[in-house]
Amino acid sequence: MKAIVINEYGDKGRLREIEFPKAIPKAKEVQIELYATSINPIDWKVREGYLQGRLPFKFPIILGWDAAGVVSKVGTKVEKFEVGDRVFARPATTERGTYAQYVTADESLVAKMPKETAFIKAAAVPLAGLTAWQCLVDFAHIEEGDRVLIHAGAGGVGSMAIQIAKHFGAQVIATGGSNSAEIAQQLGVDQFINYQSSDFDEELEDVDIVLDTIGGKVQERSFRVLRKGGVLVSIVQPPDEGKARKHDVKAGFVWLEPNGEQLEKLAELMANGELKPQIAKVFDFGQDGLREAHELSETGHVKGKIVIKIKEDEEHKESKENEEESS
């Protein structure tokens, strides 16, 4: 199979297309022929070597954590899936990621895609959607009526979090630049704060939950807007425990855990129109396409998700807009 790998840490030029052997599924695994994957900031952070020592990588590394495709083989003890199922997943593999034509995943990490969803859309969901779910539901225990502040609401995780929070009946506030306002409003935010012209910590108070996707000073200032007993959850860096005690709030860092059951819940939201992945740009699979995708992701100003089209989806042709974006 074709795969895009890195054999050493460095810039986007380290991404190279090679022939790589397909992984044979173990007893409880499925092999997925990939139609699409997507880009996440962790991809280029690993490529640059920022996470050395935190993850057990060995070269050559196939990056990528989002999978959308068709089951091509099943292990001898697989019960939930059969060949031909349209699925999506956040596989738990490290060296064998999703910048490839095939990937294997334990069946517990896989979910069936909604019938009407294209692979391009499904590929945008696993890592960002699960991250948002685990922050808001598992860590913060979001409830109806909660006031939720989501930083960088137009980003990959932020855009998912807005929609998940609205599903639970929360009042949602999002921050972003002036070019993010329209997207945030389309996603259903109740209040948008333009960080270029306003200070969120001067406008807000008594917030129940803050989802920090930025870190640094934004995280520090976020303590000020929380009510006593509120929750600050970050996907960037562990919050200061001393500040959490001072402000009498719960604070913590969430590292995504792959989870097929939660993906099934996200699939339900997609099926009923409550979760609509926001696609920033689509690139074709290949060495050049992945390098361009990494370059765009590294700008830090992507609205929604960057997706890589690996194989044509004959049942759900991409929109003309997406086709133009990928050219």
Rank of each mutant, 00 (worst) to 15 (best):
Lys58Trp: 02
Pro60Asp: 04
Leu63Thr: 01
Gly64Asp: 03
Trp65Phe: 07
Trp65Asn: 09
Asp66Trp: 04
Ala68Gln: 02
Val70Gly: 04
Val71Ala: 06
Val71Gly: 00
Ser72Gln: 06
Lys73Arg: 13
Lys73Leu: 10
Lys77Ile: 05
Val78Arg: 11
Val78Gly: 11
Glu79Ala: 14
Glu79Leu: 13
Phe81Thr: 07
Glu82Trp: 07
Val83Gly: 03
Gly84Arg: 01
Gly84Val: 08
Asp85Ser: 09
Asp85Phe: 06
Val87Trp: 00
Phe88Leu: 13
Phe88Trp: 08
Phe88Ala: 07
Ala89Asn: 06
Arg90Pro: 00
Ala92Val: 11
Ala92Ser: 15
Thr93Tyr: 10
Thr93Cys: 09
Thr94Ser: 10
Glu95Asn: 15
Glu95Trp: 04
Arg96Glu: 12
Arg96Tyr: 13
Arg96Trp: 13
Arg96Leu: 11
Gly97Lys: 04
Gln101Thr: 14
Tyr102Met: 13
Thr104Lys: 03
Asp106Met: 09
Leu109Trp: 05
Leu109Ala: 06
Val110Ile: 08
Ala111Arg: 02
Pro114Ser: 08
Lys115Phe: 10
Ala118Gln: 06
Ala118Asn: 12
Ile120Tyr: 00
Ile120Ser: 04
Ala122Asn: 02
Ala123Asn: 05
Val125Pro: 03
Pro126Asp: 12
Pro126Ile: 06
Gly129Glu: 14
Thr131Ser: 15
Ala132Lys: 12
Trp133Ala: 02
Gln134His: 06
Cys135Gly: 04
Leu136Met: 11
Leu136His: 11
Leu136Ile: 10
Leu136Gly: 06
Val137His: 05
Val137Trp: 05
Asp138Gly: 05
